[in-house]
Design a protein around this nucleic acid. Structure first.
Length: 629
RNA sequence: GCCGGAGUAGCUCAGCUGGUAGAGCAACUGAUUUGUAAUCAGUAGGUCGUGGGUUCGAGUCCCGCCUCCGGCUCCA
């Protein structure tokens, strides 16, 4: 038989030859360095037989940055971890250990809890394995055989995996450790040049919180120690971008233990907040959204009618007040529907678009709180569009367009990825209604050419949605914008309009937030810009720095001219050296410092950009330049 | 909520196996009047997250609680 190599040349091999054989046929060096076979975009274990005519690419230790090559390396390293843990902690039960982005993990049930200090010991054991060397052998066995083996080893999680596994069962053995695994794996442990265990966490068996919580050990591995070092360096850099660190440092906001999950916004943070609000208001006005303002607190009777009581109760903060119980609003929708239903509506008024960026409260689990990106108190750039069935498509198109405009303004459009979330288990309405709303959303997304992942069962309880996610500095995805099609709540809250047929109809409701939560959006922006906001967003845009005492008056005059032009300007007239004050401005990440001394005048300003570039411009010229930013 | 870790001055951190808290930066005061990332000197600042316990004695050991960090579950 023949296989086709990446340069399109053909390689003649005996029938039943494996990837390893193919490598060996090409050269001994390649056979030694081979780690994985890739065929038509799919990875394949080197030990598996090839098919006649198959396109193959053999990845070697030289492909050290290839995601597939790293994946197999880390997968094999996870098995080394399991072997080490099994040796060090008799009685441990092993669960699963896949590679993930940037590393791998393995879940265990330890007889006694372990702590982070154990990681060092385990890592040492892994190094021992590496110095001894390990080779992986692949074996296909029957379900019964696999079951028998794991019963003998008293591995209940493996038995459960065997019982629920689909297709053939394969085992990989290294030394005297055998694991149930689909593979693929390295030939041997030689390519594993750098290993680090990075963390310890609880994780529920099969991701279900009703199951037993196992202990998850995270780690990573590379083909090269320098790559591990570089990775750790990148992590360090990402930590420096963390909005929870930069926010207080840049005097934007802080948190106080007396109100966990609710930010205290400082003047500089509010400058950014207001910039977003200004943009939101201006763009909303252009697009026919009408601002409303509705109560923060509602009798729970309303939440029962809207469906939130049955489907969202655990997130609602309750306030007892005499005979009544009020719930702080976690969403604006019921309020907006009550504005709609307060009058008799005609089809001629539709679509009606209500917008409100009110404060919302959601009782999030303590462990979920995460700075601005996961808060208990936050504001969405929320809006609810009441429309007829015929208008849905246009409305959603308009929202996609609007979202693109906003995200482009911040340079985050490319960072966003979309998901289409369908009916959840806990939901209102009939399957027919969901079939319809899901198909409408899907059609809208497809027509826009939107690329999205299907997130089944992750819709809101009242309707399917399209969500836009952006990753934070450490690569954790956060849901930002959302567009949700609701066929449930309007009827429940008595929203109707008179149609041309002189009959009452129930409108469709589209919920939409484009930033998502303003808090979360600002958090992501801080990390995206690493605190170096573009001029229009920077809390302090311009800093005037008088060289000496004699220049203070002139500096203030200049500052007031700049302020009149609409810019946010400070004067740093402190009795410190110019160098010191420049340094502090740099640490504050102020876009422009204007040093003002004997040599300067309105005709000649000394302008220093963030990071040091200097230039000389007249005030008029400078203002003109700023106006374009 | 669950698993693991952490909490010492505004910030970054030191404080060995229990003996009564320390540095740098920031702040303040004074001197200096400064030319593009740290001028010099001095002063002040801490119920060691919080409540209990063990002990002659607790920042240090034990328990509860709060908050934060890394995950899990859940979500904008």
């Amino acid at each position: 038989m023949k296989v086709v190599l990446p340069d399109n040349s053909e390689l003649e091999l005996p029938d039943g030859a494996t990837g390893r054989d193919a490598a060996a046929a090409i050269g001994p060096k390649l056979a030694e360095q081979a780690v994985l076979l890739r065929s038509d975009g799919h990875v394949q274990d080197l030990r598996l037989p090839l098919e006649d005519g198959q396109q193959i690419q053999i990845l070697t230790t030289r492909d050290k940055d290839d995601p597939d090559a790293l994946y197999v390396l880390r997968h094999s390293t996870a098995h080394l971890l399991a072997e080490a843990v099994r040796r060090l902690y008799p009685g441990v039960k092993i669960a699963i250990g896949p590679p993930i982005e940037n590393g791998f993990y393995y879940d265990f049930e330890f007889p006694e809890p372990i702590s982070e200090s154990d990681l060092e010991r385990i890592e040492a054991e892994m190094r021992k394995e590496l110095s001894e060397g390990r080779e992986w052998n692949r074996q296909e066995v029957s379900r019964e055989e696999a079951r028998r083996r794991f019963e003998a080893e008293d591995e209940p999680y493996k038995i459960e995996l065997v019982d629920t596994a689909e297709g053939e069962i394969s085992l990989y053995t290294q030394g005297d450790f055998t694991d149930l695994c689909r593979g693929p794996h390295l030939q041997n442990s030689k390519p594993i040049k750098a290993v680090k265990l990075t963390g310890l966490a609880g994780a529920y068996w099969r991701g279900n919180e009703h199951n037993k919580q196992l202990t998850r050990i995270y780690g990573t591995a590379f083909y090269d120690q320098a790559d591990l070092d570089a990775y750790m360096e990148r992590l360090e850099d990402a930590r420096r971008r963390d909005h929870r660190k930069l926010g207080p440092q840049l005097d934007l906001f802080n948190f106080d233990p007396h109100s966990p999950g609710a930010a205290l916004w400082h003047p500089k943070g509010m400058a950014i907040w207001n910039a977003l609000e200004d943009l939101r208001r201006a763009e909303n006005a252009k697009r026919g959204y009408l601002e409303v303002k509705t109560p923060l607190m509602w009798d729970v009777e309303l939440w029962k009618r809207s469906g939130h009581w049955d489907n969202y109760r655990e997130n609602i903060f309750l306030i007892e007040h005499g005979e009544t119980t009020f719930g702080l609003k976690p969403m604006n929708c019921p309020g907006h529907m009550l504005v709609f239903s307060s009058q008799l509506r005609s089809y001629r008024e539709l679509p009606i678009r209500y917008a409100e960026a009110a404060v919302l409260h959601r009782d999030e689990p303590t462990g979920a709180l995460h700075g601005l990106t996961r808060a208990r108190q936050f504001s969405q750039d929320d809006a609810h569009v009441f429309c007829t069935e015929e208008q849905i498509q246009d409305e959603i198109d308009g929202m996609f367009d609007y979202l693109a405009v906003l995200y482009d303004r911040f340079g985050v459009r490319e960072l966003a990825h979309a998901e289409l979330a369908t009916r959840p288990a806990k939901k209102l309405g009939t399957d027919e209604q969901w079939d319809y709303t899901e198909s409408v959303l899907r059609a809208a997304a497809d027509q826009m050419g939107l690329r999205y992942r299907l997130a089944e069962g992750e819709g809101a309880f009242y309707g399917p949605k399209i969500d836009f996610f952006i990753d934070d500095a450490l690569g954790r995805p956060w849901q930002m914008g959302t567009i949700q099609l609701d066929s449930q709540q309007p009827a429940r809250l008595g929203c109707t309009y008179m149609g041309p047929d002189n009959k009452e109809h129930t409108p469709y409701l589209i919920h939409r937030a484009l930033f998502g939560s303003l808090e979360r959006f600002i958090g992501i922006l801080i990390e995206h810009y690493a605190g170096e906001f573009p001029f229009w967003l920077a809390p302090v845009q311009l800093l005037v720095l008088p060289v000496g005492e004699d220049h203070r008056e002139a500096a203030w005059e200049l500052a007031s001219k700049l302020r009149e032009a609409g810019h946010r300007v400070d004067v740093d007239e402190r009795d410190d050296t110019v160098g010191k004050r420049i340094r502090e401005a740099e640490l504050e990440k102020i876009p422009y410092v204007i040093v003002y001394g004997d040599r300067e005048s309105d005709d000649s300003l000394a302008i220093r950009e963030r990071h040091g570039a200097q230039s000389t411009k007249s005030l008029d010229e400078f203002l003109k330049d700023l106006a374009t930013l």
